[in-house]
């Protein structure tokens, strides 16, 4: 019961805040609504037993990316012109509504997503990628990330290189000449 209530609270606030980002005319308030949207998404992650990801969402999205976005809004003094639309509102709006309806129809049909419960399908999953629902996920994700067989060690290192390249690229791009 509590989980249902939390889900509805987080889901409605997330979608409402995302709509507000698109609709609100003041850029700075739109950025504040974006922060609310990210925070409520962290709540959705908590209802999905993803404790580590909820923390990461708050740290990275709410803490870092939102601050960067607000910094960019303040630096480029375009705020006075408001949050304007271009000429594509009607066609893109139609496409977005049709896409949303199609996705919801496809998603609500539960037969599309039969869960894996036969032992044959389960045996294809490496055992360290599965944990029981009442355990915290952090240590298991750490084991999975850094194990060399069936793990994501190479991907993790590539992600580190990507972050370093992005940081150097951002420095070079924004340097005063």
């Amino acid at each position: 019961m509590g989980l249902h209530l939390a889900f509805w609270l987080f889901a409605i606030t997330t979608v409402g805040a995302a709509l507000a980002v698109v609709i609100i005319n003041d850029l700075f308030r739109a950025a504040l609504c974006l922060i609310l949207c990210f925070f409520m998404t962290a709540g959705l992650f908590v209802t999905l037993n993803a404790d580590l990801l909820a923390g990461l969402q708050v740290l990275v999205y709410v803490g870092a990316i939102s601050m960067l976005i607000m910094f960019a809004i303040v630096m480029t003094r375009d705020m006075e012109q408001g949050n304007r639309f271009n000429k594509m509102v009607v066609p893109v709006g139609l496409v977005a509504v049709v896409l949303a309806i199609a996705m919801i129809i496809a998603v609500v049909d539960a037969d599309n997503f039969a869960s894996l419960d036969t032992t044959e399908e389960l045996s294809n999953i490496p055992s360290d990628a599965l944990i029981s629902e009442d355990k915290p996920t952090t240590s298991a994700i750490g084991q999975l990330l850094f194990s060399e067989d069936n793990g994501y060690l190479l991907v993790f290192e590539v992600a580190g290189v990507l972050l370093m390249a992005a940081a150097i690229g951002a420095l070079v791009l924004s340097r005063e000449r």
Binding site: A18, Q81, R84, N86, V95, V97, L99, M103
Partner: peptide, 12 residues
């Protein structure tokens, strides 16, 4: 879909 709509129609 909300994000798609915004990304394609916003000017800023």
């Amino acid at each position: 879909c909300i994000g798609l709509f915004g990304a394609l129609t916003k000017r800023n």
